[in-house]
């Protein structure tokens, strides 16, 4: 019988490591919604969620042995998710380039998110522009601006110094504003 997360998280992780089915199920149930929410915020596409959730937990189950416990499990899963979404984004980008279907977003300054359709369209354009950013800028933007990680955590997650994270996030914002036609506002 596996330990429950509430009762003893360390025992639960040990049981997951051993391949205990009940522990794996509890671990999955405890974290799947947070992972799904993160994927949704990063991609804006509900169609990606199931596939990427599966990829994240496959990686987590197979690498739990290397989890050192020096970060919270949630942080560790967050990091795996960022990597998986990055891989998915890069694959899609390569596929679009091959198919010459890359969409360049065009937004009129006078567009306004008056209703749900307009709001959905703006989100689509936002994610299209985000997907076109160089990976290092996109990662920094996602961690800092979308996921609102503190600089120290984003730095640890991305493996670059704090000042680099900060610069990249600002650069990503500038590139996004330009791609969305928002830069000349004065």
């Amino acid at each position: 019988m596996a330990a429950t997360l509430d009762a003893d998280p360390i025992a639960l992780l040990a049981a997951v490591r051993r391949g205990d089915a009940a522990a794996q199920a509890e671990f999955f149930e405890s974290h799947k919604d947070a992972v799904a929410r993160q994927i949704m915020r990063m991609t804006g596409d509900a169609g990606w969620v199931d596939d990427l959730v599966q990829e994240v937990f496959i990686a987590a189950f197979s690498r739990l042995g290397s989890f050192r416990g020096d970060a919270a499990v949630g942080t560790w899963l967050h990091r795996i998710t960022v990597n998986k979404v990055r891989n998915a984004w890069d694959s899609r980008r390569r596929r679009l380039a091959r198919e010459s279907e890359a969409v360049r977003p065009e937004v009129s300054e006078h567009d306004a998110p008056d209703d749900e359709v307009a709001a959905a369209e703006q989100l689509r354009q936002f994610y299209a522009a985000l997907g076109e950013l160089p990976g290092k800028y996109r990662d920094a933007f996602v961690c800092r601006v979308i996921e609102e990680l503190p600089l120290e955590d984003a730095s640890a997650e991305l493996g670059v110094p704090i000042s680099t994270v900060s610069y990249r996030a600002r650069r990503a914002e500038a590139l996004l504003a330009k791609a969305l036609g928002l830069e000349a506002s004065s």
């Binding site: 919604d33 799904a36 949704m40 915020r41 989100l123 936002f126």
Partner: peptide, 13 residues
């Protein structure tokens, strides 16, 4: 847009 991105509900898994 960023606020809208953050406010997206978690889809069912």
């Amino acid at each position: 847009m960023i606020r809208a991105v953050r406010a997206q509900p978690a889809p069912p898994v």
